[in-house]
């Protein structure tokens, strides 16, 4: 094997690093896209016996968006193993305790019951905000696209954009808008 072939072999089986911004994303929906990269399913060299999974960094897990009334209705079950040790934690409670946990559990569940699951999870790096250690972020060469459009909050829009927004009509000068109580 020539040195060129050897390097080509390294390149083919090199682990790539991806980054995913969880801001305003549904964790259960985005887990599908993340798991695909963690397992290496997006590669043409994929084979179940071929260890070709990639690393994924998930940032802004604090700002995930659960659909519908899931913040109050979804419960996470845990049992300590002792009698009476069962506990049900609501999603909003869990998220306030650990802002990474919901995303982590969504991906862990999506991986399926498999002997490789624990080792695949080791390649996942979750961060509640966008403060990622430099030694991790410098490896990143690709970004996984978000699945949902991030809505813009009205108080984050600049004032002149709001002032110049097209209007159908101007309010009369003596118009008094309803004040909120």
């Amino acid at each position: 094997m020539s040195s060129r072939q050897r390097v080509q072999q390294w390149a083919t089986f090199a682990r790539q690093w991806h980054i995913f911004d969880c801001k305003w994303q549904n964790p259960y929906e985005s887990a599908i896209a993340i798991v695909k990269h963690l397992k290496g399913l997006h590669k043409p060299i994929y084979h179940p016996m071929n260890d070709c999974g990639d690393h994924v960094i998930c940032i802004n897990t604090k700002e995930i968006a659960l659909p519908g009334n899931e913040w109050t209705k979804r419960a996470y079950f845990h049992h300590t193993g002792y009698p009476g040790g069962a506990s049900w934690t609501l999603a909003w409670e869990l998220h306030s305790k650990d802002p990474v946990m919901i995303m982590k559990k969504a991906i862990y569940r999506r991986l399926g019951n498999n002997l490789q699951r624990r080792y695949t999870m080791q390649r996942l790096h979750l961060f509640p905000d966008d403060n990622v250690p430099k030694e991790l972020i410098e490896n990143v060469t690709s970004q996984i696209r978000q699945l949902r459009v991030v809505p813009q909050r009205i108080d984050h829009i600049e004032k002149d954009v709001i002032d110049n927004y097209p209007k159908i009509m101007d309010y009369p000068t003596d118009y008094l808008p309803k004040t909120l109580k």
């Binding site: 080509q8 072999q9 390149a11 083919t12 090199a14 790539q16 590669k43 043409p44 060299i45 060469t141 690709s142």
Partner: peptide, 8 residues
């Protein structure tokens, strides 16, 4: 001739 696939 192009060589095997790699991530790039």
């Amino acid at each position: 001739i192009q060589g095997p696939w790699n991530p790039f």
